[in-house]
Amino acid sequence: MNEQSKDGRIRKNIKQGMLVEIVQKQDQRTGELTEGGVARILTKSASHPHGIKVMLESGEVGRVKHILED
């Protein structure tokens, strides 16, 4: 996977089931990351400067900071 396809700010790079790290709203100040599989993609636009918003399989919602694997 090249560097461009690991960019969590671009919607087409993110698919259901992918392992990602997100930052939840309450963790934005600390930058604490939460790891999990993508259950749903919540952002409708093609890109977002702070990361695409997703819901993890655990139900947690946040913006993608890192794509770990397919």
Rank of each mutant, 00 (worst) to 15 (best):
Q28T: 14
D7V: 06
L33Y: 15
I67E: 00
L56A: 01
L42G: 09
E60M: 02
S45W: 13
I14Q: 00
V61T: 05
S45K: 11
E3A: 09
N2K: 15
I10M: 05
Q28S: 13
H48S: 11
I41F: 10
G36A: 11
E69G: 03
R40H: 03
T34P: 09
E21P: 02
G37H: 08
P49W: 10
Q28L: 13
R29T: 09
E60L: 05
V64R: 02
V20Q: 01
S58F: 12
I14F: 01
T43A: 08
V61D: 00
R9A: 06
H50R: 14
M55Q: 12
R11K: 14
T34W: 04
T34L: 10
V20P: 07
I14P: 00
G8Q: 08
S47H: 15
T30L: 08
I67W: 00
Q16E: 11
E21I: 02
Q4K: 15
L56W: 00
I52T: 03
R63Q: 00
G8I: 06
G8D: 07
V61A: 05
L68N: 03
K65A: 04
Q4L: 15
V61K: 04
D7W: 08
V38Q: 03
H66T: 09
D7H: 01
K15W: 11
S47V: 07
D70Q: 02
E57A: 05
V23P: 06
G8F: 13
I41R: 09
S58Q: 11
K6H: 05
L68D: 04
R11N: 06
R9W: 01
S58V: 08
G37P: 07
K25E: 10
R29N: 15
S58I: 09
M55S: 11
R63I: 01
D70F: 01
A46Q: 12
G62Q: 06
I52R: 04
I22D: 04
Q28G: 08
V64N: 00
G51W: 01
I67F: 06
Q24D: 07
S5M: 15
G17S: 10
K44S: 09
Q24R: 12
E35L: 14
G17E: 13
S45H: 12
M1H: 14
S45D: 11
R11G: 08
R63K: 08
E3W: 04
S5D: 14
R11L: 06
L33E: 15
V61Q: 02
H48R: 14
R9S: 10
L33Q: 13
R11W: 09
S45Y: 14
E3Q: 10
E69I: 09
H66W: 05
R40M: 03
D70R: 00
D70N: 03
T43Q: 04
T43G: 06
I22Y: 04
Q4M: 12
E21V: 07
K53V: 10
M1Q: 13
E69V: 02
K6G: 05
E32P: 01
S47F: 13
N2F: 06
R63V: 00
S5Q: 11
I22P: 02
Q4R: 15
G51A: 06
G37E: 14
R9D: 00
E60N: 11
I22C: 03
K44G: 02
A46M: 12
E35K: 14
E60T: 06
V23I: 15
P49C: 10
Q26R: 15
V64D: 00
N13R: 10
E35M: 10
